[in-house]
């Protein structure tokens, strides 16, 4: 099953995002071995060079590290993974607030909207 990649953004960036997400969501546990470049390239239906570039970038940030002869591993530094999770969550919030602003909704109203939504969601679950 090829990964869901858009053609209008650099592919290597989308690969980085996908692997980051897999790490945060626990698909890959800290210390897990990553498949080889070629295997990952096949999974994603992308060129091995593009996959290589994405993995090198992940290595540069420290999220992934290479052992000389045995391949690449996910970092065992759980603080780093937590920090990444926080950063990505903040990005999503920033994007969301941006959209709300475009709709002309004030920040305090956004908060009440969210509370109402969460409450409503709970009621829905109860009813079900």
């Amino acid at each position: 099953m090829p990964w869901n990649l858009d053609s209008d953004r650099p592919i290597f960036i989308q690969i980085i995002e996908k692997i980051q997400m897999d790490i945060i969501s626990g698909q890959y546990a800290p210390g897990d071995k990553l498949p080889s470049v070629r295997e990952l390239a096949m999974q994603a239906s992308v060129n091995p060079n593009t996959m290589q570039k994405a993995l090198s970038e992940l290595e540069r940030t420290g999220l992934v590290y290479a052992k000389r002869t045995s391949g690449r591993y996910i970092t065992e530094d759980t603080t780093m993974i937590t920090n990444l999770k926080t950063t990505l969550a903040k990005d999503i919030v920033a994007q969301f607030l941006d959209n709300m602003q475009r709709l002309g909704i004030q920040e305090e109203d956004v908060i009440s909207l969210i509370s109402e939504y969460i409450e409503g969601d709970k009621h829905d679950t109860v009813r079900m």
Partner: peptide
């Protein structure tokens, strides 16, 4: 396009562009 590293555009027998595909995507979104 997702399996390409580079593209060469040719137009009327001349080379128009030769670039990395991800650089082009980054430049133009």
């Amino acid at each position: 396009e997702n399996i390409l590293d580079e593209v060469i555009f040719i137009q009327d027998g001349t080379l128009h562009t030769h670039a990395s595909v991800d650089e082009l995507r980054e430049r133009d979104n």
